[in-house]
Design a protein around this nucleic acid. Structure first.
Lengths: 347, 347
DNA sequence: CTGTTAGCGCGTTCAT
DNA sequence: ATGAACGCGCTAACAG
């Protein structure tokens, strides 16, 4: 049997209640009594049983995090900071991986409810059309929930994410000013997904601001927003068209597209420019450091945790959302549109 | 008040005990009684309280994972598979990040004990000399613990990891057969750390097998096993010496070294070869795909979880360790030693 | 300032 | 096959 509170109390010659006060840093106990309890605990190697404590308190100081793709360093970094800030706020973090599957996300959140977590942090999957009743359940049970890095257009809820539109706008504007007009955009499939719609909105805005109309044919849909898809879609594109530049929805896809470009014999950025989004470290350390849009992951993590903890600790939800400013990182993969360019050739 | 077992029992017209049996999939309850309980639970939206259950059972189906560097995709991948296999075995995973600091590792494991986890999985920090009494505590409390991807030479304990020595041996042998003799090895600082000692052992073995003696001057110590350190140490090395090739302890460092090589004007692999270890996806998709040693992350994860769950479910520890076979991935960053090479120039 | 007591929600003997 | 009562370890009133 492991040592428990009553053992400590006995050894220290106090009652259980007093010992409990000590471990909860609460007033109402003498300085030296406190000392005695603490040293008794140390001698016995006592560690409070959080399970019993949670049961008594009807709440645990635990936050549940649902992450989609932990193999992506972007989310790895996010997870690291969320972990850090959670601990700073005095919460334990439970992490589970949804692998971008809504069904998994549901299962995980149900588990979190079973564990009686104090709150839930969700990195949404890329599927916009699925069951959202788990979020109703959370609401009914008054378990705070905050979305991070994205949101579900069909579900309400507070969220913290990068201002994707602004980032896409700045990147597009930068390319337009370099003379690019035939700017291809490699996007994901689902038109409702914020990671796609917001980026395209920024792209469009930059064109319209210049009195231009983006040719919709330059928007190419990729099956999955990963390296391989970026590679093959770019390959197919370049076989029939000659864009001035390619923007990918994220760095991984941009790296895939870069490979396709290289194989087609075009020089970057002389013949064609390529840009991404996320600013993975691997994008900056490659041969041709990638122009991209930096997301302030640490800030997203900090605000997500702050918002969630505020709700946990009593503040009423205000259906708030926070947009974090992105930063354009101009590097060597983009440059002025190639001189002597032929007249625009649609795809 | 949230709906609890007694509510379900009442609605189903049975006792609490019977309802309990149902949710634990235990025999001794009629088929239709079971149905009634289940549908009552569904209607009420009942979710078992794992906290109370753990308290009653004096154990939770939870595994605690301590991970060092979640931003490194290698560990991201490991985490993903550990999560997957844990769930398959019916356990919930709690993940915490130690950031490679032993003090953090200790704090985290203490927390896990407080949470009454069923077992602990630890990815060790790179610090070999620190306090290991937390592992004594685990042992005393009979909480199973398995190390993954490395181990602490000064602490006992079961572990699962890649056979680092074999991988290093094969890589070195491959380079030797290509005619390389002046093979520089970028290693981490601590001589006791397995990630360093095992790799150097394989390196030495390959040399000795050919009746050669590796020149110890070619072993260069790097402060941290990261990109920047790989870059600067390689830079310093190349300023004064001309190795046939550089091996780095991991891919990240190899990518750093590659940058230094390129800046020094040498061509890869014509003038110099470069190789890493880990086989990150980013190593294979770069301009010059990196020769490296693949670690079977999924297998490490699977065996780690299997071993831990065996211990949890009663099997006695056998102080066992499992070494996973590595795979040499020959790609374009290595080639025959440059022709017309000058006589060996020591650093 | 300290001790006594009654739950927190569920699992589990024992009875029936 | 089913139900009543006790205990898991701790917190939170309330008494002293």
């Amino acid at each position: 049997m492991t040592v428990k509170l009553s053992h400590v109390a006995e050894k220290a010659g106090v009652s259980i209640a007093t010992a409990s006060l000590v471990f909860n840093d609460r007033p109402g106990v003498n300085k030296d009594t406190r000392e005695r309890v603490l040293s008794a605990a140390a001698e016995l190697g006592y560690l409070p049983n959080n399970v019993a404590r949670s049961l008594a308190l009807k709440s645990s100081r635990t936050i549940g995090l649902v992450i989609t793709d932990i193999e992506n360093p972007f989310f790895g970094s996010l997870t690291r900071y969320i972990d850090e800030y959670s601990h700073r706020k005095g919460y334990t973090l439970i992490i589970s991986v949804s692998n971008d599957e809504p069904a998994e996300e549901n299962r995980i959140i149900e588990g979190f409810i079973g564990d009686r977590v104090a709150g839930v942090l969700v990195v949404p999957t890329q599927v916009t059309r699925s069951e959202f009743k788990i979020y109703e359940i959370l609401r009914k049970r008054r378990i705070p929930c905050v979305f991070s890095t994205s949101y579900y257009p069909r579900a309400k809820g507070e969220y913290v994410m990068t201002d994707l539109e602004a980032g896409s706008y700045r990147l597009t504007k930068y390319l337009l000013e370099l003379g690019h007009r035939d700017i291809s955009y490699l996007v994901s499939l689902d038109p409702e997904a914020p990671i796609r719609s917001l980026r395209l909105a920024g792209y469009r805005k930059a064109f319209e601001e210049k009195g231009l109309e983006p040719n919709p044919d330059w928007t190419v849909q990729c099956h999955k927003p990963d390296f391989h898809s970026g590679y093959s879609e770019a390959k197919a594109l370049l076989a029939t068209a000659k864009p001035d530049s390619i923007i990918a929805i994220n760095d991984i896809m941009a790296l895939g597209a870069r490979k396709a470009i290289r194989e087609s014999g075009l020089a970057i950025p002389r013949d064609i420019s390529i840009a991404g989004y996320d600013d993975l470290i691997y994008s900056s350390i490659s041969d041709i450091p990638l122009t991209t849009v930096h997301q302030n992951v640490e800030e997203i993590a900090r605000l997500s945790v702050d918002m969630l903890v505020s709700r946990i600790e009593g503040e009423e939800p205000r259906d708030e959302h926070r947009l974090i400013g992105p930063e354009l990182m101009v590097r060597e993969s983009t440059g002025p549109v190639r001189s002597g360019a032929l007249p625009s050739t649609g795809p």
